[in-house]
Design a protein around this nucleic acid. Structure first.
Lengths: 194, 194
DNA sequence: ATTATCTATAGATCTATAGATAATGC
DNA sequence: ATTATCTATAGATCTATAGATAATGC
């Protein structure tokens, strides 16, 4: 049963969006094509009319998840972003949370096309979480701002990843999150002064 | 063909060690029982005489990898640890590198027993990478030291994870590593003063 | 007699493809 | 006529188990 071209595009986008959530939740290897297509409301055979391979879908799912994160970041100020990013709510909701934090472990074992999407995600984080949209080769002040931003996102991503690897509701998991949230907020207000 | 009890224990330890390297390299789902046993020099059927399940092995493999990291850390001073941890050599050698950084993404989706092993790994990093062996509820100075240590390891783990998710040999991958290495070294020397 | 390892296989998955079906769009 | 989706399946994996084999350790 063929559908309209517009419906087909919508179906395709829906599959990508579904994949972006399922991959974040269960990991790349934790989601099968049949699983995914079923969750999106289709049978699995149709998948290969939309995508060349599961790895190809991963690239699009990563871009989709990163775009979702960008949209969320735009609705918050710098302090709000830090407070959300390093919250228990974010930590305990991988499916809707930061794609880079949820899937960078998987990305390390993926082909170059996927890693390129993640590099773009890192640049997005530099803009959003750290407000550090500046070139590597600008003035000394711009370079310093970019360095500060890289340090901030590394710490935030690391804190989220470590907190998720600790037992659910353990004090260590919460401690990592709280300590790094306080540090990021302090850094934010001190950079606003300078 | 039965072997001596001592040989059996050695075989078991060899399987755990092989698993700890293969899991770090390919991820939990990227290593099959047959793969693993073949790499260790056995046929796959024998696996279940040693371990109750693949998930049980994961717990032991994580502990083994963390112990290997502890041993390496003991052979270096604080500066040496930072320089190694945030080096390209470490980034490009997941199989022999930090277990927490290589597998925390997978650990987030594993059962509580595995997460407990990872929490112990985080405490190991606090001791090794940050020298922060101190209780949560000590003096104000001890609390501050622990907080500093948590910030340091979050940044280091985050930098490694992000660098690995970027395209191989990309400038961004190297930049993340270099910036966070410089920051960790600076923090180290300033805390030595204080 | 016990048991670590082996061979062989069950049963369930996985990615990917082939061909049927039915609705669009010429 | 084209084609998005469906049904069905190929071929390769996966975890786990059953029973045979052969060497230990009583």
């Amino acid at each position: 049963m063929k559908v309209t071209n517009a419906q087909m595009q919508a179906n395709r986008a829906h599959i990508v969006k579904t994949a972006s959530h399922l991959f974040r939740e269960r990991g790349y290897d934790g989601v099968g094509i049949a699983d995914l297509m079923g969750a999106a409301g289709f049978t699995h055979g149709g998948f290969y009319k939309h995508f060349g391979s599961k790895a190809d879908l991963m690239v699009e799912a990563a871009r989709c998840g990163i775009a979702q994160g960008d949209a969320k970041a735009e609705s918050l100020d710098a302090q709000g972003i830090v407070n959300y990013y390093l919250s228990r709510k974010h930590r305990d909701n991988r499916a809707d949370g930061c794609t880079v934090a949820a899937l960078s472990g998987d990305a390390a074992r993926q082909p170059a096309s996927t890693k390129e999407a993640f590099a773009a995600g890192v640049e997005s984080l530099l803009e959003g979480l750290a407000g550090g949209k500046c070139a590597k080769d600008g003035s000394a002040r711009e370079r310093d701002l970019r360095h500060q931003s890289i340090e901030t996102i590394a710490q935030a991503v690391g804190a989220l990843v470590l907190s998720r690897a600790c037992p659910d509701d353990s004090s260590l998991a919460d401690e990592i999150l709280e300590v790094c949230r306080a540090a990021a907020l302090t850094k934010l207000s001190s950079s606003a002064e300078g």
